Computed example of a mutant assay.
Amino acid sequence: MSERAPRAKLRTRFKPARLKLSSDHSKRPIERMSLHDQLVAKVREMIVNSELQAGAPLPERMLCETFGVSRTPLREAFKILANEGLIELRSHRTPVVTPINRDEIANIFDIMVALDGVAGSQAATLATDDDIARLNAMHERLIQLHRDAARTAYFRLNQDIHVEITRLARNPVLLNIWTTLHANIFRARAVANYDARRWTESVEEHETFMALLRARDAAGFAAALSMHTRKTGEAVLLTLERAPARNG
């Protein structure tokens, strides 16, 4: 019985009219090691960096051909990104990059300001010395990423810090509500940090509320954390006002 000749692998690049990808991404298939994590990180970075615009389609076949992967890990990656609010999964239709609704973002930030006040007060009261040391180590890495102008890594660690603060409040209901709402403003927060002045201001605000946490000033920490979230929200909304057509 004769062996079948190996089937040539189709290498189709995206057409710019359908989905914008830089040539750098289309020429380098993702490595097989840690495939799922790499897919999530790659597509997330492209969305956060606005390489994939709001409303852009994400056709599975072309993504698989571009990255040299099967549909199974890609679909798993899509689920993670959908939970983060970055993409919208649609039944029997092509997924799309989630549009940003300015009014919805404004309403969510109003709630997040209040939630961060509660989380901050509880976290500063209940956190152990080890908890604060771990959070402070994350903060020091954040400062270094800012110095290195490593925006994508900075943004991910920044989100991890905010999640950790909320987790330290030891309130599962609060954490669940906070996480759900945060998924809807994840990308919008990243957009605001592309303003160099706001990025620097944000780092300074982190410095301020971390000093208050180390001092165990629960009221001060909660107020500073809430103010940081409020200023971030204002920066996000201002950015969206400047680019209404792009964000939909």
Results as ranks from 00 to 15, higher is better:
residue 154 Y to D: 06
residue 1 M to S: 11
residue 122 Q to W: 09
residue 134 R to L: 13
residue 183 A to R: 01
residue 168 L to N: 01
residue 158 N to S: 07
residue 201 E to F: 12
residue 18 R to E: 08
residue 138 M to V: 10
residue 189 R to D: 06
residue 110 D to R: 07
residue 226 S to N: 01
residue 154 Y to M: 12
residue 181 L to I: 07
residue 165 I to D: 00
residue 158 N to E: 10
residue 184 N to L: 11
residue 119 A to H: 01
residue 132 I to V: 15
residue 221 F to D: 05
residue 65 E to G: 08
residue 152 T to K: 03
residue 142 L to T: 14
residue 72 T to D: 07
residue 152 T to R: 06
residue 231 K to L: 14
residue 3 E to A: 10
residue 126 L to M: 09
residue 135 L to W: 06
residue 184 N to P: 02
residue 148 D to N: 11
residue 57 P to V: 07
residue 3 E to W: 11
residue 190 A to F: 07
residue 24 D to A: 10
residue 111 I to H: 02
residue 52 L to H: 07
residue 3 E to D: 08
residue 91 S to P: 06
residue 86 L to T: 10
residue 82 A to K: 02
residue 191 V to H: 09
residue 51 E to V: 15
residue 70 S to N: 07
residue 7 R to E: 09
residue 214 R to F: 06
residue 165 I to T: 07
residue 153 A to H: 07
residue 132 I to W: 05
residue 142 L to F: 07
residue 59 P to K: 00
residue 176 N to R: 08
residue 185 I to N: 05
residue 91 S to D: 08
residue 103 D to C: 00
residue 80 I to M: 02
residue 65 E to M: 10
residue 200 T to G: 13
residue 214 R to M: 13
residue 216 R to S: 09
residue 85 G to D: 03
residue 237 L to E: 04
residue 73 P to W: 00
residue 232 T to Q: 05
residue 244 P to R: 02
residue 122 Q to F: 11
residue 66 T to S: 11
residue 82 A to L: 00
residue 104 E to S: 06
residue 96 V to L: 08
residue 127 A to F: 09
residue 83 N to G: 15
residue 161 I to E: 01
residue 118 V to M: 05
residue 93 R to Y: 06
residue 162 H to S: 04
residue 33 M to I: 15
residue 22 S to D: 12
residue 68 G to Q: 03
residue 220 G to I: 15
residue 238 L to W: 05
residue 47 I to C: 04
residue 211 A to W: 03
residue 221 F to M: 15
residue 30 I to E: 02
residue 172 P to Y: 02
residue 80 I to V: 14
residue 141 R to K: 13
residue 1 M to A: 09
residue 149 A to N: 14
residue 84 E to Y: 05
residue 61 R to W: 05
residue 152 T to F: 13
residue 135 L to T: 14
residue 194 Y to I: 14
residue 139 H to S: 04
residue 37 D to F: 06
residue 28 R to I: 15
residue 8 A to N: 09
residue 43 V to D: 00
residue 103 D to G: 01
residue 213 L to V: 14
residue 44 R to C: 01
residue 30 I to N: 00
residue 214 R to A: 13
residue 190 A to D: 08
residue 112 M to S: 02
residue 132 I to D: 04
residue 216 R to K: 12
residue 126 L to N: 08
residue 192 A to E: 04
residue 199 W to G: 05
residue 6 P to E: 01
residue 93 R to W: 03
residue 247 N to F: 13
residue 40 V to Y: 04
residue 146 H to E: 10
residue 179 T to L: 02
residue 130 D to H: 04
residue 15 K to V: 14
residue 116 D to H: 12
residue 198 R to A: 11
residue 145 L to D: 09
residue 85 G to V: 10
residue 21 L to Q: 09
residue 135 L to A: 12
residue 197 R to F: 11
residue 40 V to D: 00
residue 156 R to D: 06
residue 20 K to R: 11
residue 69 V to W: 03
residue 153 A to P: 05
residue 154 Y to F: 14
residue 53 Q to I: 14
residue 67 F to A: 10
residue 21 L to F: 13
residue 228 H to G: 03
residue 71 R to T: 15
residue 7 R to H: 10
residue 12 T to M: 07
